[in-house]
Write a protein that binds this DNA or RNA. Structure first.
Length: 110
DNA sequence: GCATTGACTCTAG
DNA sequence: CCTAGAGCCAATG
């Protein structure tokens, strides 16, 4: 009856973060801090960011739906930067003139 | 096992 | 609004 009898369930912070990000609905965004809190580490926002940029190629994560606390893309402008904004706009997320999204409308909370 | 790094967040000025 | 410093945790070398 135990589905997690062996090694199925994710127990590590990283796996938990990955699981949360994969559950982000389309058209919504969330922050590193939110994910970190849900994963059990309110101070682990950096790890969330690290996981995204480092493991985005390993895991199939919608990294473009993850933004910083200001609702803005964190890393410096690049191809991926434009890609993230494009993907979010495709999902109906509107950006401010300063490149920020309206967290009051688009912030997703598990 | 230690030192460095990182797409963060918070507080203070 | 912007800058500076400190804190926190995990992966990498």
């Amino acid at each position: 009856m135990n589905i997690n009898k062996g090694k199925v369930m994710a127990k590590t912070f990283t796996d938990l973060v990955v699981n949360i990000i994969k559950n982000i609905p389309r058209g919504k965004v969330t922050t590193y801090g939110m994910i970190a809190i849900c994963a059990g580490n309110p101070r682990g926002a950096r790890q969330v960011a690290w996981i995204l940029h480092s493991s985005s190629t390993k895991y199939d994560l919608p990294w473009h739906r993850v933004v910083n606390r200001h609702g803005e893309i964190s890393f410096r402008p690049s191809l991926d930067f434009s890609l993230q904004r494009c993907l979010l706009e495709e999902e109906g997320v509107m950006f401010d003139n300063r490149g920020r999204v309206d967290l009051a409308e688009n912030l997703w909370w598990p």
